[in-house]
């Protein structure tokens, strides 16, 4: 996939989803301003926003983009990378906005909190992307799995006291989720 195609997908999707992105960022700012300083806030709340951003990319929400991407000369894994980048960037933005809210509220932000929040949010978002290609119970299960990803990352830090463990867990889940999404897109029949 050329960088142009990647940025083309990114630009078109971000433009089409601009209202959702702005709404989630506004929500993250408000939550960051009022929430007490803790790891739970950014990890769990921003992961939830990441799931919302991933689901807003479901087939049928922007049909003209779906049709263009389905007929474009791209492999499923290439398209998956382009489409996954969109909610990941938007979700990372919500984390940064949340942290900005915390800073404005006078709370300190340890760099590790930012790192773990980014890692768990991106991993949860990538898992939630697989829910967009499914319906019914399977869709709900993938959403639950995405939420569980953030919970496990949070537990690894708070209970297991292992920041590298949490980051490694997020990296492995993110890698597997992206592969799974690419394979699903390659097999997907838009009928």
């Amino acid at each position: 996939m050329t960088a142009r195609a990647l940025f083309g997908v990114l630009q078109a999707r971000l433009y089409a989803q601009r209202r959702v992105v702005l709404s989630t960022c506004a929500g993250a700012l408000v939550a960051g301003l009022i929430a007490p300083a803790s790891l739970a806030g950014p990890v769990l709340f921003c992961s939830l926003l990441g799931i919302v951003l991933a689901l807003s990319q479901s087939p049928g929400v922007h049909p003209h983009l779906d049709r263009c991407e389905q007929s474009a000369p791209l492999f499923g894994r290439e398209l998956a990378r382009g489409k996954a980048l969109v909610p990941c960037i938007a979700a990372a933005l919500t984390v940064l906005v949340y942290m900005t809210g915390q800073l404005l509220g006078g709370a300190p932000i340890p760099p590790l909190t930012l790192l773990i929040a980014l890692g768990s949010t991106v991993a949860g978002t990538l898992v939630a992307l697989s829910a967009t290609m499914r319906r019914g119970v399977l869709r709900a299960l993938y959403v639950l799995l995405a939420a569980a990803t953030s919970l496990v990352a949070f537990a690894l830090v708070e209970v297991g006291r292992s920041v590298p463990g949490a980051l490694a867990f997020c990296a492995v889940v993110a890698f597997l989720a992206l592969r799974q999404y690419g394979e699903t897109l390659a097999r997907y029949d838009p009928i």
């Binding site: 142009r4 083309g8 078109a12 049909p63 991407e69």
Partner: peptide, 28 residues
């Protein structure tokens, strides 16, 4: 191949240039 779907596009004149740039990027 290139498919032209039956459903009309819900984009207007202001988004035409954006649409062409997007298609051009996807088809290189």
């Amino acid at each position: 191949t290139a498919l032209v779907p039956h459903e009309p596009f819900a984009i207007d004149e202001s988004e035409f240039a954006r649409y062409i740039a997007y298609r051009a990027a996807l088809w290189n």
